[in-house]
């Protein structure tokens, strides 16, 4: 394995980790709001969140490419505040990945929050627990499995990303060249042995991750919650 391949693997893991962290921070409140709101724009927002599931990644990548261009408003703003160009940067990859993996984090959390008995939160409130306290002491522990699912899916999906990265990331080794792009390069250059290593490695990694998720995700958790608070 070449140093470039190792760079690509590390970059991919870093991108997935940063994306997952941001998605959990942004996705939890968004999922909570979607699970509890009766607001009229809820279906519209749900559709936007689910959009990356149906759109070809190249479509998202195309629009992001336009948005990140140095001539665009966002590109200008980024250049002015950070001094760097947004296009073909690691930050651009993170933004793209967050959007692309959003449904994989928000949807499991939203489903879990919808199932969570609100009666328990009322009980916690009568014992003096603030909303923040309720989130960490009741909501998080009772939705633990969904958080694990959401984080794993978000992570795995970011690792497996290709189309969006291809459009907005370019192919700068050590900067924006992630695993899937590196693999594409190998195949283009007919380096099949190296391609096998990367492809096989991804298959094994993804299998292990998914198996771990399914192992954690026994439906028992939800059942026991329902049992107590009809």
């Amino acid at each position: 394995m070449s140093p470039h391949d190792l760079d690509a693997i590390l970059l991919t893991l870093k991108l997935a980790a940063v994306t997952t962290a941001i998605l959990l921070l942004l996705g939890s409140p968004l999922a909570w709001w979607l699970a509890n709101t009766r607001c009229r724009i809820k279906p519209a927002l749900e559709a936007v969140v689910a959009l990356p599931l149906v759109l070809p990644p190249t479509v998202i990548g195309f629009y992001l490419l336009l948005a990140f261009a140095p001539s665009s408003a966002l590109g200008q703003f980024w250049l002015a505040t950070t001094g760097d160009s947004l296009a073909f940067s690691f930050s651009a990859l993170v933004i793209g990945s967050v959007l692309y993996s959003l449904p994989f984090v928000v949807q499991p959390l939203q489903a879990s929050f919808e199932q969570l008995p609100k009666s328990l939160l009322e009980a916690a409130a009568t014992m003096g627990a603030s909303l923040k306290d309720q989130f960490f002491s009741i909501i998080m522990p009772l939705s633990k499995r969904s958080f694990i699912t959401a984080a794993s899916l978000g992570f795995a999906h970011t690792v497996g990303e290709f189309g969006v990265v291809l459009m907005i990331g370019g192919n700068i080794p050590g900067e924006t060249q992630v695993l899937s792009i590196a693999l594409y390069d190998k195949v283009e250059n007919l380096q099949y042995t190296e391609a096998h290593w990367l492809a096989g490695g991804l298959v094994v990694f993804s299998l292990l991750l998914l198996a771990t998720i399914y192992r954690f995700n026994r439906p028992a958790a939800i059942g026991s919650i329902k049992g107590v608070s009809h």
């Binding site: 009322e122 009980a123 009568t126 014992m127 009741i138 522990p141 107590v228 009809h230």
Partner: peptide
């Protein structure tokens, strides 16, 4: 808000926290 009224409420259904033991529920309060 409820959490600032310094009251206690016993509901018709007990509403114990299923992820905590009996002691855990008592300590929560």
């Amino acid at each position: 808000p409820t959490q600032q009224r310094q009251i206690a409420y016993v509901f018709q259904d007990a509403r114990l926290f299923p992820h905590l033991s009996v002691l855990g529920n008592l300590q929560y309060a």
